[in-house]
């Protein structure tokens, strides 16, 4: 599905140059469930942001569905992104001024989809995730677990084939964390490709493959036996 080759990401601020990713090579196939692990500041989130086309690499190539997107501008990336990728963030990133249903609908809003179709899809996904009874609530009225469910619903409502989850359980207690992981497992079983950054070895165990990063390098890749 996607292939990173000799990928670099360097941040420059005035006099300081920070290398976040250093020659990363990674291939992710359709239907994979990959966990990215490593200590704080090792480049996990940067890697995820580049895979998600929220950020661009400084060097190297990034092939997404056989298309090299490394040099693409924001406008082109945005088109690929909205068709193919759903995001789940540690801090949920729900919009406070929108209700649960509207937050989920946001993922469809930029897809030229008729309003009736959007409403139907939002309703379906809320039923599926079990938050339909909270449809009219504002994010501030929900618990952390509920907010992350909404975030998951928003990530999957567009039926994108790839879900990127940046520490999706980082802000949750163990029970709610478990719930989210179960959802991701179900999604994976339904064929969705998932790349997840996590600190938790237990949650990493849900994945088929774990990529360990250290100081911007991929140090090990472990594939779990089926």
């Amino acid at each position: 599905m996607l292939k990173l080759h000799d990928l670099y990401k360097v941040y420059r601020t005035d006099d300081v140059e920070t290398v976040a990713l250093s020659g990363v090579n990674l291939e992710i196939n359709q239907g994979d469930f990959i966990a990215v692990m490593g200590p704080s500041g090792c480049g996990k989130s940067t890697l995820l942001n580049i895979i998600g086309m929220l950020d661009s690499p400084s060097d190297g190539s990034y092939c997404f569905l056989d298309e090299d997107v490394a040099g693409y501008g924001e406008a082109q990336l945005s088109v690929i992104r909205k068709k193919n990728i759903g995001f789940i963030f540690q801090s949920f990133n729900l919009i406070d001024e929108l209700t649960v249903a509207e937050n989920i609908e946001l993922a469809l809003l930029y897809h030229d989809m008729p309003a009736a179709e959007r409403t139907r899809r939002v309703k379906d996904v809320m039923d599926r995730i079990g938050i339909a009874h909270r449809a009219g609530h504002m994010p501030g009225q929900l618990s952390g677990g509920q907010q992350q469910r909404v975030a998951v619903a928003r990530a999957i409502v567009g039926d994108q084939p790839l879900i990127l989850a940046d520490e999706p359980t980082g802000n949750l207690d163990s029970v709610h964390g478990q719930e989210v992981m179960d959802m991701l497992r179900t999604l994976h079983s339904e064929g969705t490709t998932i790349v997840m950054v996590t600190h938790s070895p237990a949650h990493a165990d849900y994945a088929q493959r774990t990529v360990n990063l250290f100081d911007g390098y991929v140090v090990t890749e472990n594939t779990r036996a089926a």
């Binding site: 998600g52 929220l54 924001e74 406008a75 945005s78 088109v79 992104r81 909205k82 068709k83 995001f87 990133n93 729900l94 919009i95 001024e97 946001l106 993922a107 809003l109 930029y110 897809h111 928003r154």
Partner: peptide
């Protein structure tokens, strides 16, 4: 800013 970031993540163009 975060709202804008989120909308862009969801595919909103700058024009939108």
């Amino acid at each position: 800013s975060r709202e804008v970031g989120m909308r862009k993540t969801m595919g909103a163009s700058q024009r939108q």
